[in-house]
Design a protein around this nucleic acid. Structure first.
Lengths: 215, 215
DNA sequence: ATGCGCAGTGTTACATGTAGACCGCATGAA
DNA sequence: TTCATGCGGTCTACATGTAACACTGCGCAT
């Protein structure tokens, strides 16, 4: 089983770079994405940069103002709550489907993430959040519905733009971690409905806590 | 209150043209979308065509094969069932949210569609399906969650690629129409949970019927 | 028949050219 | 001061040039 040779298309490299820069906060929300400027910095022509920027618009990571350029998307509280509202249903569906299809390897990966998260909970918050995203990503990717996977991954990425709005209190991280454990247990027992319910409850609660915190 | 002058960007015109051509079946699934060829036919340069084609890929209406061009997406039974599975949750969410926010005008529009559908049910199947899509579209657009709207519209469009797999029997259309009435009633009574449940049941049943029919 | 090389054709992917739209700023009139 | 007007620079949006690449069909060897 050979993996396909990497495409090595400039547009893909540029897209990945920009995406990483945006998600890491290196390119802050609101930053103008000037095609000529980026092309100079990346030392490629304008064409692939333009394409890459448009792809990011399609992913929701940037917004286009016709004839006035593209800028990195801003995610305000309202937008973040919208994302939670949608993800609560989408991730719940993914969890239900994943419950039936999880392999031993998937479950092991999930456990690994949870254990790492347990260790990180006290210290590195940044790391904790990455593991949180990874937890959800594994479940989404296991659900065997390519549409759910595509939309789920997109929502997960888009949500990272709202990092600054998320909660960092220890009690909240602990609680999320507990809820993740509950979800993982349901998945391990192949109890789809339980996983679905637990996932929905988890995301709904987090959304509520976020809303509360920024009241 | 003047509405802004339309952008009149060539890329938008091309995108709309291609989208319409694909959704109407004028460009059949699997058709190769050659940028130079389309540019010739539409009498514009390759740049806006290339952009438009990439946008369609982002919408799921076309698929890209790296260095081997783009073709109109094929939607097989598996893909159609995936879409139903996802839409069952997404539309159910939209219905719940819409129940609280529907204006009198929205409800009137919904009734209009249902009545027109009742009249069309016996005769024009094509028209019936368009009204079916319109029914769901109104609900999605009323839900006041911009993410749900964006993803919902996308799924609705993508689904039209599977037209040939849909059921045309009169009994099935009648049944769908009945279920739409139930949903509309729940919305009119602002009963979010009931609308959600009815919507989910409706789409799940349709998916089951489609699966059954192509067994 | 089957497999391989090898032009020939058309395309993608990237580079570059350029008209006109937009923004910021300065200047001048009210 | 406030607001209109004009200017210069930058960018978007579209057009076009071109190298490398992928498919085709043909001839030739096996």
């Amino acid at each position: 089983m050979l993996k396909p040779v990497s495409s090595t298309r400039v547009v893909d490299l540029v897209r990945d770079r920009l995406r990483t820069a945006i998600l890491s906060g290196d390119l802050a929300p609101g930053t103008r994405l000037s095609v000529p400027e980026l092309a100079r910095q990346l030392e490629v022509s304008r064409s692939p940069v333009r394409e890459a920027v448009l792809l990011l618009v399609g992913e929701g990571l940037a917004v286009e103002h016709t004839r006035r350029g593209v800028e990195v998307a801003r995610l305000d509280l309202t937008g973040l709550l919208e994302l939670y509202e949608l993800r609560a249903e989408l991730d719940a569906l993914a969890a239900r489907l994943a419950a039936e299809r999880m392999t031993a390897a998937d479950l092991a990966a999930l456990r690994g993430v949870l254990d790492a998260q347990g260790a990180a909970a006290l210290g590195d918050r940044r790391c904790f959040l990455d593991l949180d995203a990874r937890f959800h990503q594994i479940i989404v990717q296991t659900c065997a519905n390519s549409r759910v996977i595509r939309h789920g991954e997109q929502l997960l990425r888009e949500m990272r733009l709202g990092r600054r709005l998320l909660l960092n209190e220890t009690w909240h991280l602990k609680l999320s971690h507990e809820e993740h454990r509950v979800i993982e247990r349901a998945l391990r027992q192949r109890d789809g409905p339980a996983a679905e319910t637990a996932m929905r409850a988890h995301l709904t609660r987090v959304a509520g806590a976020v809303r509360q915190h920024h009241a």
